[in-house]
Design a protein around this nucleic acid. Sequence first.
DNA 1: TAAAAATGATAGATCATTCTATCATATGAT
DNA 2: ATCATATGATAGAATGATCTATCATTTTTA
Lengths: 192, 192
Amino acid sequence: MSDSRSVTKENKLNAILDAATEILVNKPTASMNDIADYAGIGIATLHRYVESREQLFVQLALRSIKVVGEILSQIPKDDEHIETYIPTVVEELIPYGDKIYFLIQDHQHFCNEEILEAEAIILEPIREVIETLQQRGSIRQDMSSDWILNVFYSILILTWQQVQNGHVAKRSAAKLVIDTLFHGVKATGSSS
Amino acid sequence: MSDSRSVTKENKLNAILDAATEILVNKPTASMNDIADYAGIGIATLHRYVESREQLFVQLALRSIKVVGEILSQIPKDDEHIETYIPTVVEELIPYGDKIYFLIQDHQHFCNEEILEAEAIILEPIREVIETLQQRGSIRQDMSSDWILNVFYSILILTWQQVQNGHVAKRSAAKLVIDTLFHGVKATGSSS
DNA sequence: TAAAAATGATAGATCATTCTATCATATGAT
DNA sequence: ATCATATGATAGAATGATCTATCATTTTTA
């Protein structure tokens, strides 16, 4: 009883968060009223599910981070798969761009400690793989793993944005990210 | 008389815009009062120089864009220099990061048409150079010039940010941008 | 069906911010 | 010294947003 009730409550909360995500993608300045309207509920009900605007954003961020974390945890990192780890990460993450990228868009709302820490935790395994690949010699060692991670992240976000805009096709996005990140834009065989 | 007066007025306006830039870098949510305080003037005077908050941001953006435009216009684009054009652009632009990069930070305030258009105008010559280099065969032709321009821009912004954070040394920043953009992060000589 | 819980609409308290108005003071030119 | 102009401090109007409280209505549960 209290179980089934809390389950449906959680479902409804998720529906609200979904709606909030959707409208915030298109209108980052959407007010609580806008969000409630878009979710098809009253403002009062919105506040029954969400303590405050700030908490709403924290929940949105943490939920996105959780999704990413779950995706990442399912990608094998053992020796056999490590060379394809990053391409696989991109391939798996691209489809979720519309639900994630807007979170990073505005620095305004997402400088919360809780969020930044969670983000760092998410990115850490990727950084470790980068370091391993550096030691293996398949990624350059004359750049810090932090830098490479940041470049990777930047290109990924750019790609999400471009897919959103319709400037890049979703199915070619992953390849583009990896190709750009690994090989750069210089023509092959040309001298510097 | 009216000349010298308007000159000093313009100087004062510039000083105010400088102060606004500085505080907004550290605190993107700074209120008009914060900005006036930081500039060492009263809020009333601030409004005597600036019509509204929105106009302040427009002026900040247009001024930054103007600075960038002037820098770019002094970099030669002829055949002789075209291969070094992009490196030179980076080299020249890096020092101005602290005055520019925060403008792109928050999409919130800078989706103004006037600003986006001006930004596009600034970037256009760079895109043209990219296209020329593609035709010359020194930049890959299997990626659109738009994509390459966006990657370039993203990495540049990332670098400004990293310099700001102290994670990247200012003097090595330009080289890092170019190296990453052109060659990617894959170790040289390794097979895919 | 009857009780309990959830919802929506509304009004409004609270708060922050932008911008204006006013006036006393300071600065600067002649 | 005098007059015009610029400035700062302050108060406050106007606006917009968040969040709460209330109550009638709907939905769910037993």
